[in-house]
Amino acid sequence: MESLQNKRAIALERIVWWSVQMSLLAGIYIMYVQGNGTKVFMGLLTVAVLVVIALVQRRFDYPLPAIFASIVYIFVFFSVVIGTFGGGYRIDHFDDFLHVFSGIWIGYASWIILRRLLRNGGAANLPNSFIALYMLSFSLAAAAVWELLEFAGDKLFSFTAQGRDPDDTMIDMIMGLIGGLITVVVILTLRNKGKINEAVDKE
């Protein structure tokens, strides 16, 4: 039977999803009026991705924990609505904040993947050092893949995700790694206090 806490998490996910979608559509309209076709295209791609996530969640009985999905939607809001449509990237360190944020939810994703690969409870037998190394490696690899996607988007679709200074790419990866480290600290702290099973089971 679905727990009350899980029902509330799912309800929150739906509210966040609709809020982000509405803000995306409003931003797309504004970009269209301003004649910015590149940002309109980027916005439509983002809307399509969120629709696919929602369909997968409904069709397969929420394979992604509702709290995790909500975090991803909030990240999309900050990165696309505030950053791309609202000019947030002109704010000092806004991009750094986003990469730390992305490192946090990617680190969380790595933990979810690990637990699902070891469905028989094997994660409980893994040492903290291995979990930390795994999550940090996952976060760094994901940060590198993200930079590759930004590079591809800039070259293929004339996006402006990457700066011309190569330091920008390295700093972005470092910020992502810091975000992953934050998640490692939180997960291992909960684990050492014996609260990690309860926290995961209620997702």
Rank of each mutant, 00 (worst) to 15 (best):
Y89A: 01
F85N: 07
T84C: 10
G87I: 03
I71Y: 10
V76I: 15
A69V: 07
G88E: 11
I71F: 12
G86Y: 10
Y73H: 14
H93G: 04
G86M: 08
V81E: 00
Y89C: 08
F97K: 02
S79V: 05
F101K: 06
G83T: 02
G88Q: 04
I106Q: 06
D96A: 13
D96Q: 11
R90N: 10
G83E: 00
G103Q: 05
D92K: 01
V100R: 06
F78L: 11
F77L: 11
W105Q: 06
G87W: 08
D92L: 09
V76T: 15
V80I: 14
V100S: 07
F68Y: 14
F77V: 04
Y89I: 05
D92Q: 08
H99R: 00
H93I: 08
F75C: 08
F78M: 07
V80Y: 03
V76K: 14
V81I: 10
S70A: 12
F101R: 04
L98F: 02
H93L: 12
H93N: 13
W105S: 01
F97T: 01
V80C: 02
V100F: 09
F75M: 05
F101P: 00
G88R: 10
I104K: 00
H93A: 13
G86E: 05
F97C: 11
V81Q: 06
D92F: 10
G103F: 01
I104H: 00
G83R: 01
A69K: 14
V81C: 03
G86H: 11
I71R: 07
G88F: 07
Y89K: 00
F97H: 08
L98D: 01
I91C: 11
F68K: 10
